[in-house]
């Protein structure tokens, strides 16, 4: 892991001065957020502040509640009948109970672990699915949005000649970038990513990571990852979850070089996990 830390030292851009950190706004704040499935604990009393226009990585061993936390941020647990959510979540200072879940999800988009383009739709239709399903039909605007978002997600050059072919005909990595294009086309403020590269090969993974880096200027990104190197590469801040609790949350660089908690150190150095 020493190689890894050296690499991070070299990356000056990851370094954020304390000052700019204080100035940057809070995009998401959770207060005593707990999720239970029946009686089983998913996460418990999570207090966390996610900064705007930063990439926040969530790491931790399997079953530690990373995804549970992420999914509570856009009310995905509404779909799971057994799930019970307690505590408060603020998005840009506004309590999410003030929104209805549909409007809230327009602000908080999500990219999933397995690429999930709509199989009945073309590449083109997938990009604008969120708009079209909500009633936007003006072709000239849609054309523009498709081009803009495919370019933004770095897919345009690869698919511009086959916008009308089925989305599922693309490769896995392309499908995932298509899903990102689909997510940003509804203009969210925050993008949640649930292990977006775990089903992809290394080349596709590096393209997605590059994309995440580029998206940071426009969006706040929270990314769950199994891959600690990935967290180190893409994120500004890292949260370490263990058994449903938030163990440590600090700047990525500090997290991987000089963690406060013993548990964190053991995890990031690969002693367990």
């Amino acid at each position: 892991m020493t190689e890894e830390t050296e690499e991070i030292e070299d990356k000056e851009e990851i370094e954020i001065s304390e000052e700019s950190d204080k100035e940057s706004k809070i995009a998401i704040q959770t207060i005593d957020l707990s999720v239970y499935f029946d009686e089983r604990k998913g996460i418990e009393n999570i207090n966390m502040k996610v900064r705007k226009n930063r990439v926040t990585a969530i790491i931790g061993p399997s079953g530690c509640g990373k995804s549970t936390f992420l999914r509570s941020l856009n009310l995905m647990h509404d779909m799971t009948p057994k799930a019970r959510v307690f505590g408060e979540i603020f998005i840009h200072g506004e309590n999410i109970t003030n929104y209805n879940s549909v409007d809230m999800r327009k602000k908080v988009g999500m990219v999933f672990q397995k690429p999930n383009p709509f199989p009945t739709m073309s590449v083109y239709d997938n990009v604008i699915a969120g708009l079209k399903l909500n009633g936007m039909t003006k072709k000239s605007i849609l054309d523009e949005i498709v081009e803009k978002n495919l370019k933004h997600s770095g897919l345009w050059e690869e698919v511009k000649d086959r916008l009308k072919s089925p989305a599922v005909s693309l490769s896995g990595g392309q499908q995932q970038r298509l899903c990102i294009a689909r997510t940003i086309s509804v203009n969210p403020e925050i993008i949640l990513m649930d292990e977006p590269t775990s089903a992809l090969d290394p080349i596709s993974t590096s393209k997605i990571e590059e994309l995440i880096f580029n998206l940071k200027s426009d969006y706040t990104i929270v990314i769950v990852t199994h891959n600690m190197q990935q967290a180190a590469r893409v994120s500004d801040q890292t949260a370490f979850f263990y058994l449903g609790n938030l163990i440590e949350f600090s700047k990525t660089r500090r997290m991987f070089t000089n963690p406060k908690e013993k548990l964190t150190e053991e995890y990031v150095t690969g002693k367990f996990g």
Binding site: V102, M104, M110, F112, N116, G130, C179, T183
Partner: peptide, 28 residues
């Protein structure tokens, strides 16, 4: 797949539209 329902909901599409335009269409 459940993931398609979630994908649609995560785009801010309402439940009934998700059922009608995504789930039903996929299974048509």
């Amino acid at each position: 797949p459940q993931s398609l329902r979630e994908a649609s909901l995560a785009l801010g599409v309402s439940r009934w539209k998700t059922t009608l335009r995504v789930v039903l269409t996929t299974a048509s």
